[in-house]
Design a protein around this nucleic acid. Sequence first.
DNA 1: ATGGCGGCTAGGAGCCGA
Length: 254
Amino acid sequence: MKISTWNVNSLKVRLPQVLQWLADNPVDVLCLQETKLTDDKFPAAELEAAGYQVAFTGQKTYNGVAILSRLPMTDVVKNNPLFDDEQQRIISATIDGIRIVCAYIPNGQAVDSDKYQYKLKWLEALRTWLEQQHTIHPKIALLGDYNIAPEDADVHDPALWEGQVLCSDAERAAFDRLINLGLKDAFRMFPQEPKCFSWWDYRQLGFRLNKGLRIDHILLSAELAQRCTACIIDRVPRKWEQPSDHTPVIATLD
DNA sequence: ATGGCGGCTAGGAGCCGA
């Protein structure tokens, strides 16, 4: 079973690329972030025609998440019931006995901004809820755009980014608290080349110069980590015309 | 580098992302 995540930065613009990527990479589950579509505009028919069931929750202009699955989905839940939030950033479902949580964690903008405080509160509420979910569902995976580079190895220029949003101590501590629930960062379970990233700025030739960050992650509970045989970042769609600034991450489970 | 690029809403220029 292959489960994956991709921040598509507008599903309206990126739908052809999502369909192409799924044709090339027939994963069982794809979690999407930043769909930026209200539910009435979600391209369900096109994705169903490609062989995927869909669950989604969106809003105008910003945010929006979805789960695409080849297998049936049950118990779809939108958002974090413990956190009153107008922003549509979480959707979860059970697929083949696995609880899949798709999350678009807030960006935070800058460490001195209100959005950063919202990000930290949002992460604390996520941790509390996920702890409960983990108890209920021992087979649980949290996939998405975390907007956190967990370690300096996940940053192209750690000195430039030190203390900045996405790399600050408080954000990394929040990431560690998720790990401490008993979750594993699937990508770091395996040997990887240095300077592997999942996001590159559109500006300044970010991708060509590999000036990126690894901020898209798949965290697995112990039962799933045992079954995980590979985790890779697929840079290919970042090379396509009109790409998302993020690229997919895929974990393979036995 | 208080920018850039790209998508969004607008139907301008400005917000936001990361």
